[in-house]
């Protein structure tokens, strides 16, 4: 994979877990870890999805900019709407948006070339996230050990976006069904990623879970669409 152009903020941490890599949008994504156990994702899996394509923008014109390009804009602050192919458009607070493609989406590829400085009231936000998916029955136990927000009060259908602090790191959290797997999604600044990963996987290991590869967390995802 030496040819891959991009690398995940967690590339180094994942490399120690002896992964099999696949390439997504120019970034290696850990598909299988050497000691992936089949039950781990069902218990408490933490999967790096930093490779998924995403863009960010903010400003008073950001919502209109997205609408004009056919993107379903969530009308309430801190909610999200779904994109074809499993992606999400998250409205972060009032006027900022995070657009991320799912495993087979093409929205980001379509929008990114348009997103340049110059549109009035539309300010590109470079996204270099550490993006995670948390799967399994013990996700809430991990959340309550790391974050002071009651996530059990949120239903998936309400499509709530939560901007909060988790173990001291600013994170964006939402609940999603991705390629047939219910999961919690987490985004944080890439430079905080290794710390967050180390902390979450450490706690998860105590709970009988831990780091998992993409193929283990999302067995039903269509891998060929990613490449």
């Amino acid at each position: 994979m030496a040819a891959a152009l991009r690398s995940s903020p967690l590339a180094h941490a994942l490399a120690t877990l002896h992964p099999e890599w696949i390439e997504v949008a120019g970034m290696p994504l850990a598909s299988k870890l050497r000691d992936d156990r089949p039950d781990r994702s069902a218990k408490l899996g933490i999967c790096d999805l930093s490779a998924l394509p995403r863009i960010g923008l903010k400003g008073p014109g950001a919502a209109d900019w997205l609408s004009a390009r056919g993107v379903p804009v969530p009308d309430q602050p801190n909610t999200w709407s779904a994109l074809e192919g499993g992606g999400a458009v998250a409205r972060l607070a009032r006027t900022e948006f995070l657009v991320e493609d799912g495993f087979s989406g093409k929205a980001v590829a379509r929008l990114a070339p348009d997103l340049k400085p110059g549109s009035p009231g539309v300010y590109p936000v470079p996204r270099q996230d550490c993006a995670l998916a948390l799967t399994g029955e013990l996700v809430n136990e991990l959340l309550v050990q790391t974050c002071n927000v009651d996530f059990t009060a949120q239903t998936r259908d309400a499509r709530v976006v939560t901007l909060t602090l988790m173990v001291g790191v600013s994170v964006t959290v939402l609940q999603q069904r991705l390629a047939g797997t219910d999961c919690w999604r987490l985004w944080c600044d890439g430079t905080s990623g290794p710390y967050l990963w180390e902390t979450l996987t450490g706690i998860a290991a105590e709970l009988g879970g831990g780091a998992v590869g993409f193929a283990s967390a999302f067995p039903d995802a269509q891998l060929q669409n990613l490449q």
């Binding site: 690398s7 180094h12 270099q128 001291g168 430079t191 905080s192 710390y195």
Partner: peptide
């Protein structure tokens, strides 16, 4: 005892 820290992309 969380030890919050940031690493640059060149850490490794």
């Amino acid at each position: 005892g969380f030890n919050v820290h940031r690493e640059t992309p060149l850490h490794s």
